[in-house]
Simulated scan of single mutants.
Amino acid sequence: MGMMKEFREFAIKGNVIDLAVGVIIGAAFGKIVDSVVSDLIMPVVGLVFGKLDFSNLFVVLGTVPTGTAMTLDALKKAGVPVLAYGNFITVAVNFFILAFIIFLMIQQINRLKRSHPEPAPAPAVTPEDIVLLREIRDSLKGRTPGA
């Protein structure tokens, strides 16, 4: 029973819940980035490079059975080993876009933090013995030596 109570306290802590929310939002954001890359960016890049579709770039590493279409999906279904480097290019572009978007978000957050500077710290309190020594020094300034 003690272990269940500890686990419940751990699971209910704010950090775990914040982490779970972050993972869920991150997964949804990843899907959005995948869609932006595959549906918006890669077609434009493909158009620039001669209507090239990166998702279908691959190298066949094995023997292709007779009658199998030379598409990535058909080769994978037939169990033919393929090096799908086009998929890697797409995932790499996804990563760089996601990293750039996160960079821009962090940059904006930092800019907002800098626009509201923290108040200056209060001056240090002078110890009482120093204050008394300064008063003695100031009172002795007007006197002549030996008087």
Rank of each mutant, 00 (worst) to 15 (best):
K51E: 14
V36E: 07
G46Y: 04
K113Y: 09
A99V: 15
F88H: 12
F103A: 08
G30F: 10
E118C: 01
L140K: 09
I97L: 15
T71D: 03
R114Q: 08
K77S: 12
N87H: 13
E128H: 06
L72M: 01
T68M: 02
N94M: 13
P127C: 03
D129P: 06
T90V: 15
V80A: 00
T66L: 11
L47R: 12
P65L: 08
A74E: 13
G46H: 10
A99M: 15
H116R: 12
V37N: 08
V45A: 14
G67S: 04
K31D: 14
K113P: 00
L52E: 10
T63I: 08
P65I: 07
G50V: 09
P43I: 00
G142E: 12
I106D: 11
I136K: 03
L83I: 08
V131K: 06
V36Q: 09
G30E: 08
L61W: 06
S139F: 07
I89A: 12
E135L: 07
G86Y: 04
A122S: 07
A92D: 02
S115N: 04
V125D: 03
V60N: 01
S139N: 09
R111Y: 10
L104R: 11
I106E: 12
L104W: 11
V48G: 12
V60E: 05
F54L: 11
R134M: 07
R137C: 00
D138M: 04
L98W: 04
F103W: 15
I101T: 11
A78I: 04
D34S: 03
R134C: 02
G146M: 11
I17K: 13
V16M: 11
V60F: 06
P145T: 09
P121M: 02
V16Y: 10
F29E: 12
Q107V: 05
T66E: 15
V60L: 05
G86K: 03
T68R: 02
I130W: 01
G146I: 09
F29D: 09
K51N: 15
K77F: 06
I89N: 05
P145R: 08
I109G: 07
P81V: 09
I106G: 02
L61I: 07
G79T: 08
V82G: 09
E118G: 08
L98C: 13
V33T: 12
T144P: 02
F88R: 11
D53I: 11
A92M: 13
A84F: 03
I130M: 05
D53A: 10
E128I: 01
L83V: 03
A84P: 08
V64A: 00
G30W: 09
S139W: 01
D138T: 00
N110K: 14
V37Q: 06
P119Q: 01
I24R: 02
P81I: 10
L104E: 11
A27W: 15
E135N: 01
V45P: 09
S38V: 13
R137L: 01
V37R: 11
G26E: 10
N87M: 14
N56V: 03
V23L: 15
V36K: 05
F103V: 06
F100D: 13
I41Q: 05
M105P: 07
G50N: 08
V37G: 02
I130L: 06
I24Q: 10
A120F: 08
L19E: 11
V93S: 06
L40W: 14
P145W: 10
